[in-house]
Nucleic acid binder design. Structure first.
Length: 464
DNA sequence: TGAAATGTTGGGGCG
DNA sequence: ACGCCCCAACATTTC
């Protein structure tokens, strides 16, 4: 006898059917499960109509729709404010329970709390589960019983805790999809983002859990070399799975199981990146003030120098520093930026242009397909030296030497800054030097700042 | 997952 | 043969 006659699984950023804890629980404990996605009008306000994340989500929904249709079931997609819409659905479909996955963003936590108390008032059971991380913020604690503020000891403890009981932590939650509601029980047409005027956007990876699994499989050929190739933007060394982690089309448990199944030097380093992801989610959950300001509050007093023109030049990839411009143009054109270049571009905005990291954070948030508040915020605070585990403020990257080290023959620069295509691999990193200037640069701009000077200014700003 | 400045060492040219 | 200088290579310190 199932505990619930009919339940809803409220999908948000867990857009898959496999290894899904909330769906698993719903299917185990109910006779009938109705999967629901709400196009949240609270979130959509102010988004540009060619939003990449919207396009990705819609693609995931399309896949889920057809996967469920094949099983004689359906996904219900409705539009509105979750706090209004979900209770209506609960009534309309006589639902006894609602299941969903934890979300650690401050606004989502508020939303989910409000939802649970609204459902409680209606006498409806609601329950949420860990899904997007292996360990939640209070599952990995330091000796003092407090959450970590530094990555390395956190990561050590993370691995130790995992290996203490790997089978349980990496367990696959395989939902019994036979419990999914029969399509004829569900009425009305599904809402689409297109109804709200959203249009096509370019995606550097296709949406959906099938694609995610295919990418993971393909990555198994390359992951052994990940530690050697991952820093070079012209090499296809990284997994490109970030959007799939973002929207839960890949189970983190599956990703970590994959690491242990393909164990190598490369896998170890990649696993570390997954731990970074959880580290920043933990930080956001435990120290939510980072959303609005520096992890270390004294750094909110820094006197950044806002400059509209320079900020625009940075955004558009017109700084005169080829590697920075290539990075920004990659972001603008594809919605992706190689991780090494995220650091270089962020350092340039904060330590060369002396512009507040929050401006950069906001721009990345608008552009990145894989954008996630926790990781983006953590990365920016790391670069700006305002965060936990930040680079000391005097560690400033030199955009030219970074370019020479990580794009030695200029292949990446040539791809995104075609004005410089004709330059030799020696000259392409810094085409402005007296006597080195060559023709065929089109209207590639002069450098908007002098790195040597700006570096000293940045250090001086922090000293105060 | 820094880079520049400064210090040290040792080989080789040269008077 | 010797002392001196130059400087590359490497190491350490500093921001």
């Amino acid at each position: 006898m199932a505990q619930f006659e009919r339940s809803i699984v409220w999908l948000r950023r867990d857009l898959r059917l496999s290894d899904h804890r909330a769906l698993f629980e719903a299917c185990s404990r109910s006779n009938e499960v109705l999967p629901v996605f709400i196009i949240d009008e609270n979130i959509l306000e102010g988004l540009k109509k060619d939003n990449r994340q919207v396009e990705f989500i819609q693609g995931c929904l399309n896949e889920l729709e057809s996967e469920l249709a094949e099983r004689g079931s359906r996904l219900l997609v409705v539009r509105g404010k979750p706090l209004e819409v979900l209770p209506q659905l609960v009534k309309k479909y006589s639902v006894n329970a609602v299941f969903f996955s934890h979300d650690y963003e401050p606004s989502a936590k508020l939303r989910d709390q409000a939802m649970m108390s609204a459902l409680k008032k209606m006498g409806v059971h609601s329950e949420s589960f860990k899904d997007q991380v292996i360990f939640e913020s209070r599952e990995i604690l330091g000796g003092s019983g407090e959450p970590y503020k530094v990555f390395t000891p956190y990561a050590r403890n993370w691995v130790k805790t995992l290996e203490l009981n790997k089978a349980e932590h990496l367990r696959e939650y395989k939902p019994n999809l036979k419990k999914l509601i029969s399509a004829d029980q569900v009425s009305g047409k599904n809402a689409h983002f297109a109804d709200l005027g959203f249009t096509k956007a370019f995606l550097f990876v296709e949406p959906g859990e099938k694609v995610a699994r295919k990418l993971l499989k393909g990555f198994s050929e390359r992951i052994g070399k990940y530690h050697e190739t991952r820093d070079f933007p012209a090499i296809n060394g990284t997994s490109k799975l970030s959007p799939h982690f973002r929207f839960g089309t890949l189970s983190p448990r599956e990703a970590v199981r994959f690491c242990y199944d393909h164990f190598s030097a490369g896998t170890k380093v990649w696993l570390n990146e997954l731990i970074w992801r959880e580290f920043y989610q933990m930080i956001l959950d435990q120290y939510p003030h980072v959303e609005k300001g520096a992890f270390k509050p004294p750094y909110d007093e820094l006197k950044w120098s806002w400059n509209e023109k320079k900020f625009q030049a940075w955004c558009e990839g017109r700084t005169g520093y080829p590697i920075v411009d290539a990075a920004m143009r990659q972001l603008n054109e594809t919605g992706f930026m190689h991780n090494r270049l995220r650091m270089v571009a962020a350092m340039f905005l904060t330590k060369d242009l002396l512009i507040n990291w929050q401006e950069g954070e906001k721009y990345f948030a608008e552009q990145l397909l894989d954008h996630e508040l926790a990781a983006n915020n953590g990365g920016w605070q790391w670069s700006a030296s305002t965060g936990c585990d930040a680079q000391p403020y005097f560690r400033v990257m030199n955009p030219i030497s970074q370019s020479e080290r990580f794009d030695a023959d200029g292949e990446f620069i040539r791809k995104y800054v075609p004005e410089l295509k004709g330059l030799s691999s020696k000259r392409i990193h810094w085409p402005h030097e007296e006597g080195l200037f060559s023709t065929g640069m089109g209207d590639y701009p002069e450098p908007i700042v002098d790195h040597k000077e700006q570096r000293l200014k940045a250090i001086a700003m922090f000293k105060k």
